[in-house]
Simulated scan of single mutants.
Amino acid sequence: MALIVGCAKPTFRTFYKPIIFDDQRKQLSIEYLQVRHGIKQDNAVIKPVMVVLHWTAIPSLEKTFDAFNNPTLPEARKAISTAGTLNVSSQYLIDRDGTIFRLMPDSIFARHVIGLNYCAIGVENVGSESAPLTKKQLLANENLVRYLKTKYPIEYVIGHYEYRQFIGTGLWKESDPNYLTEKTDPGKSFMKRIRNRLKDLNLKGAPEKK
């Protein structure tokens, strides 16, 4: 099923490719919100003010979907299982040709960025350090961010590698100060280009390092 979306740029399509969001994933999401972010609520919903751009480091869309689909973390992700067994995911996934897939509603909680999941929409892009994101992905990310800005009070667009710069700010909510990872996605060059294309929206980046 395709959702045809209008924005400042030409209309684009978002295809719905839902990951499993059953009672188990819902409950694990609610628990993660409470335990990791200190937010107690009955539903796994977020109030987005931020979009976080990622690359998958997995070579294909289908393999990425398979990695996100199950509600619980696989054995291979033991390093982050100390923070909970909820599997990682994102609301959107963009293929190399720029095709946008919506994996879950953008107002539903996804585990994709430490300390900020409760207020951030995640956009994964198929790519890696050795397979930099494409021009078609750049355009798709621009269109998607513009659309999300019309739907929510989005203030920030950041690369995953910038998330630690929010530590100590009012947005940072992580119960364990030692639970941090080093990230490089989606690349500094990509973020420079996407910010140049979105400069008319006056969106903020991550706070400057002190």
Rank of each mutant, 00 (worst) to 15 (best):
R146L: 04
H54M: 09
A131K: 13
P177W: 01
E155P: 07
D106V: 00
V123I: 15
M1F: 11
K9R: 11
S128P: 08
P74A: 15
A44F: 01
D185P: 05
I19G: 02
P59V: 03
S175C: 15
G122K: 13
I108N: 00
N196D: 12
D42S: 13
A140F: 01
T14L: 12
L138G: 10
R13L: 06
T64D: 13
M1R: 07
E31F: 00
V126K: 03
I158R: 08
D185L: 05
R96D: 02
G115H: 09
S128T: 11
D22N: 15
T14C: 14
E208D: 09
I114E: 14
G205C: 08
L3A: 09
T169H: 03
G127E: 10
L198R: 07
I19C: 00
R111F: 04
P207G: 00
K209N: 08
Y92V: 09
G205L: 13
C7Q: 05
L139R: 10
V52C: 15
K26Y: 06
L139K: 14
G159N: 05
L116H: 05
G38L: 04
A79K: 15
R36H: 08
L86R: 10
N141Q: 12
F12L: 07
K149L: 00
D106E: 14
Y179E: 13
R197N: 12
